[in-house]
Nucleic acid binder design. Structure first.
Lengths: 188, 188
DNA sequence: CGCAATTGTGACTGTCCAGTCACACACAAC
DNA sequence: GTTGTGTGTGACTGGACAGTCACAATTGCG
């Protein structure tokens, strides 16, 4: 199974494993305070690794963040496709995906990181990552549901509404206006 | 008109003027890179004032940012109410407001600052500001349009979609998926 | 005038943090 | 052994930036 190639290209050691481990932690850690406000040292600590090592594995803090954002969108797209199921009308499949997205709120990280990425779009590399991620998600949803453009747009719009609900913590705000925004997105 | 109170409470000098001038600039400047990534010195420079003076007028950088966010939401609510007009069906008024919101994209600042505020909601004072602002907007829209809860929620959702379109710069992305997200929100 | 209050700033400090670099450890192959 | 290759870190540096403070400059008032 584990090939120990005698010579040639990459050595397939634990380095690549570390990379994915660190990215996984980076998603969670960056999700709390975003790009600029999160020190690399915090990600390193969460991954039980020294900051210096993180800088060796990634091209600066920016490279790390972009990797985390890419991973985040990939996870979201995968979750949506999985939730869409194999059959049913486009509308029904979209509904399943919508429920799946609301389910994602429980984790918070995937939602929050998207918000922070969108906020940091003044950095060109991050804007590119957001565009890539968005393309992935839109194509995944459209393809896996078979729904029309308007329905897909609507899906994305309500996704964005979820972001707002999560960030503002509307679940803890018990007022009429909050319930208007919140409606149908209620979560524990 | 301009009362020069001989004694008593506040002295109503130019200090309050400076405050509002600085807040106005703060909205524009914070809109570019957000809370953490924007030095107070940049706001001060935009307002042609020393950083030290800004710290005298506001309770730290946080106080300045919160003031900017409050002002931002107030402007948005005012613009929407103004656009809603005096008569017409709730649906028609909501449509006018939607067009007005899309019109706001031209400025970018009011949109971008909302995104940054939502992103910085891990700071309690900022989350409070977002909740206040959101309450203002939701109540303004619901009150001035007379539309039902579902329609208002839909309005907010499409507002959030505008935020995404602006931050990701989708107007410059000429692909099928971008047009799906973008549709009806096209701007110069 | 002198006195007080208010606007406004230059210069400084302390802290935090991205990024680097020389070095240590493990484990091959020879 | 030693030589080489890859994993991993401690210790440091340089810069950026929030916040402070002592000190002007201006204005109003008795």
């Amino acid at each position: 199974m584990s090939e120990t190639r005698s010579r040639g290209a990459g050595i397939r050691s634990t380095a690549e494993d570390q990379r994915v481990r660190i990215v996984a932690r980076a998603v969670d850690v960056f999700a709390v305070s975003g790009y600029k406000a999160t020190p690399v040292a915090e990600v390193a600590a969460a991954a039980k690794v020294s900051p210096a090592y993180v800088f060796r594995l990634f091209e600066g803090k920016l490279g790390l963040f972009v990797a985390a954002v890419d991973d985040c969108y990939a996870q979201v797209a995968a979750a949506l496709v999985a939730a869409g199921g194999e059959e049913g009308t486009p509308a029904a499949r979209l509904e399943l995906m919508t429920q799946a997205y609301i389910e994602l709120i429980r984790d918070r990280s995937l939602i929050a990181l998207q918000v922070h990425a969108q906020s940091a779009c003044d950095v060109p590399e991050i804007q590119d990552a957001v565009r890539r991620g968005l393309a992935t998600v839109v194509r995944a949803v459209a393809g896996a549901s078979g729904a029309g453009d308007d329905s897909v747009q609507r899906f994305i719009a309500y996704g964005q509404l979820c972001h707002l609900v999560v960030q503002a913590g509307l679940a803890e705000v018990d007022t009429a206006w909050a319930r208007v925004v919140d409606h149908g997105i209620r979560h524990d």
